[in-house]
Simulated assay, not measured.
Amino acid sequence: MKSLLAALALVLTPALAAAQDFTVVGLDGKARTLTAAQMADMPRESVKLAGKKTYEGPVLAYVLREAGAPSGARLHGPAMRTYVVVRAKDGFAAVLSLAETDKDFSNGLAILADKVDGQPLSERDGPYRLVVDGDLKGSRSVWGATSAELKTAD
């Protein structure tokens, strides 16, 4: 019985790990897949959504930097037309300007939460949930987030 459980764990582990991957697409059109381990190693913050639950996860700005997103002093001029589309596994999407994700431009904070109130997200809400500090409603809180794509407005 133990060997059957061990074999099952070996088979399911890659599938569970793949479910935690997050894809980020840069302005160059190249997709980069970040593993759950890579996401866990990024700087993390906590955000209270609409004054209720506390979400914790990697800061969106650091995830976007993996795709070459400009930040800080490099975020000026034409780069100010850059926006990010965060997409969910069910097709829902929300848009933020790149400046909204940068601490040099915004007092708010956007994270890709993987925990809520200290517990892992539910299967419905995971693998990640976009949470934007300061939002009064959860309408931009993309649950089931699987990707983010950088784009430039005309």
Rank of each mutant, 00 (worst) to 15 (best):
A7P: 00
S97Y: 04
L121A: 15
N107E: 04
A88F: 03
L75W: 01
A15Y: 12
V84C: 06
L4A: 13
V142N: 09
G108K: 00
A94D: 05
L60I: 08
P14N: 00
E66Y: 00
R65I: 03
L136R: 15
G57D: 15
A145D: 12
V116N: 02
L5G: 00
A145H: 14
A9S: 06
L121I: 14
A7V: 02
L75Y: 00
A145G: 10
D28P: 01
A50M: 11
G91H: 04
L49D: 14
M1N: 03
A93H: 06
V132C: 15
L34A: 04
A61W: 02
A88H: 04
A61N: 08
N107D: 06
S97E: 07
G77Q: 05
F92T: 12
Y55T: 14
L121C: 14
A50S: 14
D41R: 13
A94I: 05
E149P: 02
S3I: 11
L12H: 03
V132M: 15
V84E: 01
P78D: 14
L150N: 00
P43Q: 09
A148I: 13
A37V: 03
S71Y: 07
E45D: 11
S71E: 09
P120Y: 11
F22M: 08
D133L: 11
V85S: 07
D104S: 07
P70G: 00
E56R: 12
V47I: 10
L96F: 14
K30P: 07
D21W: 15
V84R: 01
R44T: 12
A88S: 12
T101D: 01
V84W: 01
L64S: 03
L136N: 05
A15T: 13
V86E: 08
V85R: 12
A31W: 06
V86P: 10
H76E: 08
A153F: 13
D133E: 14
G126M: 06
D125L: 09
G91D: 13
L150V: 02
L49S: 09
A7L: 15
W143R: 10
F92S: 12
R129A: 05
T33Y: 09
G29L: 07
K2L: 05
V25F: 10
F22K: 13
D28A: 02
K52N: 10
A37E: 03
A99C: 00
V25E: 15
K103C: 02
V95C: 01
A67E: 08
L16I: 10
P120A: 06
T54W: 07
A79W: 02
L112N: 07
D117P: 08
Y62D: 15
V85Y: 03
K48S: 05
S139T: 10
A36G: 11
G134D: 04
D28R: 02
K30G: 08
L150Y: 03
S141P: 00
F22D: 15
A19E: 08
V142F: 09
G26Q: 05
E123Y: 13
S147I: 09
T35H: 01
D117A: 09
G57V: 11
T35L: 04
V85F: 02
Y62G: 04
G57R: 13
T54L: 10
S139I: 06
A40N: 12
T23F: 09
P127G: 12
D21C: 14
A99S: 06
R129N: 04
